[in-house]
Structure formats: C-alpha cells, structure tokens
C-alpha cells in the first residue's frame, strides 16, 4: 500500500511539475510572440532574452537561461531571425549565439576572437547564406549559416556599427567611436561578390544605423558629437554615392513597410519622439507619429509587418528592468510588457 502511495505521489508530482511549469522550453510554444533582447549591463554577465506570448500576454524573462541552462553572456547588442535560426550578438562576451528558431535552445556559440583578442561584435546583416557581422576591431566577419564558422574577414573602417545590404552591396557605418572626439565620418561600401571594400562614402560625423528602402537607397544615422553637432539622417544614392543630409533630428531608423520610423531621444530634456519618414518623397510626414511621452528612455523601435504593430523598447534609467510598449500600425497605444534590463531588439513569431 505504501509503495502504491509513493508511486502515486511521485506520478502526481511529476505530472504536476510538467503541467504547471511555464518556464521550461518544452511548454513554450514559440508562435505568436516575440523574443526581446535585453542587453543587461557591462561587466554584469546579465544579458538576457525575454519571451512574450501575445496570446495571453505572459512574459518569460531569462528565457534563454531557462531553455539553454546557461547565461547568454555579457552585453547583448543585436538579435535577428534568419532562416530557421535566431542569432544574438553578445558584445562583451564577444560571441554570436545561434539559437534554434523552433525550441529557443542554443545550437552553437561562435567565439569571436582574433589572435586571442575579442573582436567585439556589434551588429548583423544577412546576405544569401552568409551572416555579416560588424566587429569593433574594424572588420566585417562573414559567417556561413550552415557551418556556422567564420569564413573570412573584410577590412572596413574604424569601429563599424550598423550595416545593411542593398543590391549585392553591403553598407557599413564606420563610427570611429573609440577615437572620440575625432570620430569617423564614413560608410564602407563592400562588394558582396568579391567580399571586399570598394570605397568609403563620407556622410557625417559618427555614423551608426543603416537602413535600406524599397528602392535600394541607403539611409544612415550620424550621431554627431553629442553636443554641437546634432544626430541626423542622411541618404546615400547607391549609384552616384551622392549624399543628402536631412535637417531634422534623428537617432534611430526602422523600416515600416514603405516608410521609416524615425526615433529621436533628446537626453538634455528627457523627451523622445517617433516620426514617420517617406523615403519616396524624402519628407518627414509626421514628426510625432507615436505618443511616446510615457517612454522614459527610447532604446529600440521594431515594426511587426505581419501584425502591423510597432514595438518600442524603453530602457528606463539603464539600471532598472525595462518595458516594451505595443502600438498599432496607426500609432495608437495598445499595451506594454515588462521585460529584462535594457531591452533593445525584438524578433517576432507569427
């Protein structure tokens, strides 16, 4: 009788654990939701991924830790989905984390080290079967999506940040941030047929983010000197390499269908705004497309084309856990999700 009771008890415990534990990867259906990269803080080893289930609004923080049973690393910087995999750039740890798009479990951790020195990866773009990773040592690494090995390195400018692909060419923002105040002003143009830099285009001080519109034009944010030279949007004509400078404030750019969402955070006043830019007419059609007055620290903007929703990452004061605000495509606020420390990048599951 005692044996039967024990077996029943164990069975009950086992089944109840499986049923009630929503944090195990086996129970999380990676659909109709989003992964949020929370950068964490430098030297704290607390970069994390939160998973938000849109069906019930449940947020699973430390999702990566729960699925892969280890910490993502120190200071995540980019998170993107390509093919069947999720790729996370972890800057402090100098790794690329390759995560299964189905289970959320780590497939491989690619060390980004050259000659014993961490390359400090920053951002990613994708081209055919290649992952293109900007590294702060002045290179773009080419990683094969099948072997998940670094195949070659492309020398670009100093301290490259954002990058984007347009018509078999890669455009890389060379920030030169580590030479502050003598920062870089160029964008490297890399031929993806030969995987070599063909030229540098001067756009303005401290280039950071790069985006491409439907016509193949390249838009670059230049952050200036954080003082007298403002943060602005610039456009490169990919045929003539002629640069157009726009006169409105801009510190981030996000593609939304045929338009761009232009984010700007004025840290002197604490105000943020998100405008709408039409790349066809090259005009800012709305200076305040979203009401982000409740956002304390505008830290990331992502558009979900399948749901036609906009997601704003709020890093608060950088030392407290942040929120992701959800708006519909017309700019109306819907809800918010409380996530990890310093949320910045989002990938979606339909």
């Amino acid at each position: 009788m005692r044996l039967i009771s024990s077996i029943l008890l164990l069975t009950l415990l086992f089944s109840s654990c499986k049923k009630d534990d929503p944090t195990t990867s086996g129970n999380v259906q990676l659909s109709n939701g989003m992964m949020v990269l929370c950068e964490g803080l430098f030297q704290q080893n607390n970069s994390s991924i939160s998973y938000v289930n849109f069906n019930n609004g449940v947020v699973i923080n430390d999702f990566f830790f729960k699925t892969s049973e280890r910490v993502l690393g120190d200071t995540g910087n980019d998170l993107q989905r390509y093919g069947g995999k999720i790729y996370a750039v972890v800057n402090g740890s100098s790794t690329i984390e390759v995560i299964s798009g189905v289970t959320g479990i780590s497939i491989k951790q690619i060390p980004m080290v050259e000659g014993g020195v961490p390359k400090q990866p920053r951002s990613m773009a994708f081209y055919q079967d290649k992952i293109l990773v900007s590294c702060y040592d002045g290179y773009v690494d080419v990683i094969d999506t099948t072997s998940l090995e670094v195949q070659q390195r492309i020398l670009v400018g100093s301290n490259p940040e954002g990058l984007a692909v347009s018509n078999d060419y890669l455009y890389v923002a060379n920030s030169g941030g580590l030479n502050f105040p003598n920062v870089d002003s160029t964008v490297s143009v890399v031929n993806l047929t030969t995987f070599s830099e063909e030229l540098k285009v001067t756009v303005g001080k401290n280039p950071s983010d790069v985006e491409v519109d439907a016509a193949g034009d390249i838009y670059v944010i230049t952050r200036g000197d954080y003082a007298s030279i403002p943060s602005r949007l610039n456009k490169i004509n990919p045929n003539t390499y002629q640069v157009t400078h726009f006169s409105f404030d801009a510190s981030s750019i996000t593609r939304m269908n045929g338009n761009f969402l232009i984010g700007y955070a004025d840290f002197a006043t604490g105000d943020s705004q998100v405008g709408l830019f039409d790349p066809v007419g090259d005009v800012l059609t709305a200076t305040t497309y979203l009401d982000v007055s409740s956002v304390q620290n505008l830290y990331g903007i992502t558009y979900n084309s399948a749901l036609d929703k906009i997601y704003i990452c709020d890093a608060k004061d950088f030392v407290t856990t942040g929120d992701v605000f959800e708006f519909d495509g017309s700019g109306a606020f819907l809800t918010s999700y409380h996530v990890g420390l310093n949320p910045s990048k989002v990938v979606f599951y339909e």
Binding site: Q44, N45, D74, S93, S94, T95, P118
Partner: peptide
Amino acid sequence: PGAIILYNHH
C-alpha cells in the same frame, strides 16, 4: 583583470 566576463577570458 577586470570582471570575469563569461566566454571571454581576455
């Protein structure tokens, strides 16, 4: 030595 950064011993 700085902080112990996971996966980065440099």
